[in-house]
């Protein structure tokens, strides 16, 4: 049985990186007594898959992981057991039973919704807001992406599904699939570059609102939060 778990991360936990969150959940699951399944072999590990790694410093209200379990006592008890061992800053929001044959969490990710707002004492520069206002009329948003070997030109525009921005907040729904994953700060940085301003990522708080999977097809995407593909249990 595969269960998809939705969780939120904020407060002090934003300083804990993805690999440590993984370790954290392994320990919490043991501590909670959830009957997780283990892989075979000499050093068995918990069968667990995370949707999309979250960068350090980012708040999220829509993180997902899938775990394989052998037995359970119902969804409410599952959520309660896991929440009872969480530290402040981590909260289990939902759990659903996945139908057999569902892709693992990571492969299921299609998009993510982000909010970005200036941290205390900071603001979006007027020049950047002016550029953002022209978003709909832009044909492309070219950024340079460094790979291990060389630098590639990437067009962000086709990967941005929704976009709006005012002086308080940037809102966007972007491609988060393994083939075209982009970050909200990449868009912001592109606008800063266009304005000829230096972008300091530490001035802005990024929030991942939710992570989505595609229940449509490649050409007619239908994006839904990742916990909407499962069933109550």
């Amino acid at each position: 049985m595969k269960v998809r778990v939705k969780f939120a991360k904020d407060g002090l936990m934003v300083y804990i990186g993805h690999l440590d969150i993984l370790r954290y959940f392994q320990k919490c699951i043991r501590k909670s007594g959830i009957d997780i399944a283990y892989s075979k072999g000499f050093s068995p590990h918990q069968i667990m898959s995370f949707a999309a790694p979250l960068g350090v410093g980012i708040i999220s209200s829509g993180e997902y992981m899938d775990i394989e379990i052998n037995s359970h006592e119902g969804r409410d008890k599952f959520i309660e057991d896991l929440n009872s061992v969480m530290v402040p800053g981590m909260r289990i929001l939902n759990a659903v039973m996945l139908p057999d044959g569902t892709d693992n969490a990571m492969a299921s990710v299609a998009a993510a919704r982000y909010k970005v707002h200036p941290k205390e004492g900071k603001e979006f520069p007027k020049e950047v807001l002016d550029i953002a206002a022209a978003f709909d009329s832009m044909e492309s948003i070219i950024v340079m992406k460094e790979t291990k070997k060389n630098t590639l030109e990437v067009d962000l525009k086709p990967h941005i599904y929704e976009f709006s921005m005012d002086e308080k907040e940037l809102n966007c729904l972007v491609d988060a699939s393994s083939s075209g994953n982009i970050k909200s700060t990449q868009i912001l940085k592109a606008f800063f570059d266009m304005a000829g301003l230096e972008f300091n990522p530490l001035d802005y708080q990024v929030i991942r609102v939710d992570t989505y999977t595609n229940i449509g097809d490649e050409n007619n995407m239908k994006l839904v939060p990742m916990d909407q593909v499962g069933e109550m249990f």
Binding site: Y15, G17, L202
Partner: peptide
Amino acid sequence: NDKILLKIDKPARYIGNEI
């Protein structure tokens, strides 16, 4: 502050909050 915590190596060394 947030700026320092995001700049240094392994901020988890300094925030407490562990299980």
